[in-house]
Each structure stands twice: as structure tokens, then as C-alpha cells.
Simulated scan of single mutants.
Amino acid sequence: MVDPDGGPAGLYYDDEEPEEAPASRLPLKRIAIVSGSVAAAALLVSGIIYGPAVVRVLGQSDTEIKSPDKVGAFTLDTSDGAKSASEYIRDAIATEVSLDNSVGLIYRDSGTDAILVAGTARIWKPEETLKTA
């Protein structure tokens, strides 16, 4: 006896139900598209929120410090003692805070001294940096 499907006789039954494919298969393509869309939307929103701040911070590089000879009634003290004292204070602050450029100056007005220490750097948390200094 020969099976009409071409196989040996008696091994196949017509009463068997065919196996069904699993119905709960994950749609990977849809998941990838949704995940990519969510990531793109998150990137766009963060760019809108943080973009202007980043542009301002990056645009303020290469700042120069200029020290005028006179500020109001105060005049710049260029004596050796004033230079030594202002540089000592500047060095003390510059060791605590990483500065790109820094300057220390002493201004005098009839009996009143003003010490100016200034520096430039990209400081992301100024409050903490000032407390450290």
C-alpha cells in the first residue's frame, strides 16, 4: 500500500489536527520603531530645554580678565608689597579652584584697601566652588 502523499503507508493519519503556530509572538519591528520614536522625542525635548544653556556656556570660552588702573575712587596699587600680597591670595584661591586664568590686585583709596581676586573657568556648580574657595 502506498500513501498518496508519497510517504510509507500507515504512518500518517488524516484525523490529526495540524499544529498551530504560537499566537503570542512579539512584534519586534513595531517595538523597535516605537522605542526609536520615544528616544528621538526624548532627545528633541532635552535639546529644547538644555540647548540654550549649553550654547551660552560653550560660547563664553576664552574670556579675558582686564584690570583697569582706576575703579571709581580706587586706584591700582602697583607696589611690590601689594603685588606680593595679592598674588599670595590669588594662589591660595587658585589651588582650591581650578582656574584657566586668574589675577590678584589691590586697589587703594585714602586709607581703604580693596583686594580683587578674579579668575576664569567653566564652573558647573558655582555655589559649591565658592564654598570650597
Score class of each variant (00 low, 15 high):
47 G>N: 10
43 L>D: 02
5 D>A: 15
52 P>A: 01
69 D>R: 07
47 G>T: 10
62 D>R: 12
76 L>P: 07
65 I>Y: 06
113 D>T: 06
105 L>R: 15
92 A>K: 14
14 D>F: 07
86 S>T: 12
127 E>P: 00
64 E>R: 08
124 W>P: 00
102 S>T: 13
23 A>D: 07
99 L>F: 04
3 D>C: 15
30 R>Q: 09
43 L>C: 09
23 A>R: 11
78 T>M: 07
125 K>G: 00
25 R>S: 07
105 L>Q: 15
96 E>S: 11
128 E>F: 02
20 E>D: 09
89 I>K: 10
67 S>P: 02
89 I>A: 15
59 G>R: 06
125 K>R: 09
90 R>Q: 12
72 G>R: 06
8 P>F: 07
115 I>P: 00
8 P>A: 13
5 D>P: 00
57 V>M: 04
127 E>A: 13
12 Y>C: 04
70 K>H: 03
55 V>T: 08
11 L>D: 11
69 D>P: 05
120 T>Q: 10
41 A>Q: 02
50 Y>S: 08
57 V>C: 00
75 T>Q: 10
13 Y>I: 06
102 S>R: 12
2 V>R: 06
56 R>A: 12
102 S>H: 13
56 R>F: 01
31 I>N: 02
46 S>A: 10
7 G>C: 04
88 Y>K: 15
15 D>L: 07
114 A>G: 00
79 S>R: 06
90 R>C: 07
117 V>Y: 03
71 V>Q: 06
83 K>H: 11
10 G>H: 09
29 K>L: 05
70 K>L: 06
78 T>S: 10
73 A>R: 08
101 N>R: 14
80 D>Y: 09
107 Y>C: 11
54 V>D: 05
112 T>H: 10
93 I>H: 01
17 E>A: 14
72 G>A: 11
50 Y>I: 02
52 P>N: 02
17 E>Y: 05
40 A>E: 01
128 E>S: 14
85 A>D: 14
21 A>W: 09
39 A>W: 03
97 V>W: 03
16 E>F: 11
7 G>M: 13
83 K>V: 14
30 R>A: 14
2 V>Q: 08
61 S>C: 04
24 S>I: 06
98 S>R: 09
82 A>P: 05
64 E>S: 11
82 A>H: 04
29 K>E: 07
11 L>I: 14
96 E>H: 05
